[in-house]
Simulated assay, not measured.
Amino acid sequence: MHSGLEAWSGITFSVSFLASALIAPYWGSLADKYGKKPMLIRSGLSLSAVYFINYFVNDPYAFILVRILQGLMAGYIPASIALVSTNTPEKEVGYALGVMSTATAVGSILGPLFGGMLSHWVGTRVCFMVSGYIILISAVIALVGVKEVHRKTDGIRPSVILDLKQAAANKRLMWVFGMTLLVATSVMILEPLLTIYVVQIGGSAKGASLSSGIIFSAVGVATVIMGSHWGIIGQRIGYDKTLFIGLIGGGIGNLL
C-alpha cells in the first residue's frame, strides 16, 4: 500500500465538501434571483465536465484541484429539492419529497454497487466517465422536462451573515447543528477509508473496490427497508427518543 494513502484519500474527499460549503450561499442567492432550474442545469453540466476532466488526471495535486472545482460546481441535489418543494402543489409536496428521498436512497444503493463492479472490471478511471455521462443525462432531462414557475422574493433578501447571527441566537437550533456536525463527522471519517480498511483486514486489493461498493450499498438497502418504519416509531414514541436510539445504534455499529 502506498505511503500516506489514507491522508491523500481524506484530503481529496474532504476538500470538495469544503469548497461546496463556501460557495453554497452564493449559488443559493443566484437561485433566488434567477430560479432553481438554471442552477440545476448549471450544476449538472458543470459536474459532468469535471467528471470528464477527472478521467485525464494523473497527478494527486491536480486531482485535488479538480476536486475543489467539483465542490465549487456542486449543488445539483439541493437545487432539485428546492425546485420540487417550491413548484409542487402544497397538498402534494410531502408525496413529492418522499419520492425524491426514495430516489436518493435507491441511488445510494445502485451507485456504490455499480461503481464497485465497474471499477473491479474496467478500472476506477472509467467510473469518472460513466458518472459524467449519467449526470449529463440528468442535466438534459432537467433542461427539457422540468418546468419552473419562478417567483422572485419581495423586499431585500437578508445577508448570509444575518442568517448566521439569527441561527446562533437560537440555542436549541445550535444544539441540533452541533449534533448534526458530530454525526456527519463520524460518518465522513469512515467513508474515505472504507476501501483501504477492506484491504487491511485481509481483503484482496483487486477486489477492494467491489467489496466496499457492496458494503456501501448494504447501508442503503437497510435505509430503504427501515427508514419508513423508524418514521412511524418516531411518531409513536417521539423523535427525540428515536434519534437517541439511532445514535446509540450507530455508535455500537462503528465500535463493532
Results as ranks from 00 to 15, higher is better:
residue 1 M to C: 11
residue 3 S to K: 11
residue 3 S to T: 09
residue 4 G to F: 03
residue 4 G to M: 04
residue 7 A to R: 11
residue 7 A to L: 12
residue 7 A to E: 11
residue 9 S to K: 03
residue 10 G to H: 02
residue 13 F to L: 00
residue 15 V to H: 01
residue 18 L to T: 10
residue 19 A to N: 02
residue 20 S to K: 04
residue 24 A to C: 10
residue 24 A to G: 07
residue 25 P to N: 12
residue 25 P to R: 12
residue 27 W to Y: 14
residue 29 S to V: 09
residue 31 A to H: 05
residue 36 K to F: 07
residue 37 K to T: 02
residue 40 L to Q: 03
residue 41 I to F: 00
residue 42 R to K: 11
residue 43 S to T: 03
residue 46 S to E: 00
residue 50 V to C: 00
residue 57 V to G: 12
residue 57 V to E: 08
residue 57 V to H: 06
residue 58 N to D: 15
residue 60 P to N: 15
residue 66 V to T: 11
residue 67 R to F: 02
residue 69 L to C: 11
residue 71 G to I: 06
residue 72 L to P: 03
residue 73 M to K: 01
residue 74 A to S: 13
residue 81 I to S: 05
residue 82 A to I: 07
residue 83 L to I: 02
residue 90 E to D: 08
residue 96 A to G: 08
residue 97 L to T: 13
residue 97 L to Y: 07
residue 97 L to E: 09
residue 100 M to D: 05
residue 101 S to Y: 07
residue 103 A to N: 11
residue 104 T to H: 13
residue 104 T to C: 11
residue 108 S to C: 09
residue 108 S to P: 08
residue 112 P to G: 06
residue 114 F to D: 04
residue 118 L to A: 06
residue 123 G to C: 06
residue 124 T to C: 05
residue 127 C to L: 12
residue 129 M to N: 06
residue 130 V to W: 05
residue 133 Y to L: 15
residue 136 L to S: 10
residue 147 K to N: 12
residue 148 E to N: 08
residue 150 H to A: 08
residue 151 R to D: 06
residue 153 T to I: 14
residue 154 D to G: 10
residue 157 R to Y: 13
residue 158 P to V: 02
residue 159 S to F: 07
residue 159 S to I: 10
residue 160 V to H: 08
residue 161 I to K: 09
residue 169 A to L: 14
residue 169 A to C: 10
residue 170 N to C: 15
residue 171 K to T: 15
residue 174 M to G: 05
residue 175 W to H: 15
residue 176 V to A: 15
residue 181 L to Q: 05
residue 183 V to L: 06
residue 186 S to P: 02
residue 187 V to C: 07
residue 190 L to V: 15
residue 190 L to N: 09
residue 192 P to S: 08
residue 196 I to P: 09
residue 197 Y to E: 14
residue 198 V to N: 04
residue 198 V to M: 11
residue 203 G to H: 11
residue 206 K to V: 13
residue 209 S to M: 11
residue 212 S to Y: 03
residue 215 I to L: 14
residue 220 G to H: 06
residue 220 G to R: 06
residue 222 A to Y: 10
residue 223 T to I: 12
residue 227 G to T: 08
residue 228 S to M: 08
residue 230 W to M: 11
residue 230 W to R: 10
residue 231 G to R: 13
residue 235 Q to W: 04
residue 237 I to K: 12
residue 238 G to A: 02
residue 240 D to C: 08
residue 243 L to K: 05
residue 244 F to S: 12
residue 252 I to Y: 07
residue 254 N to V: 13
residue 256 L to N: 04
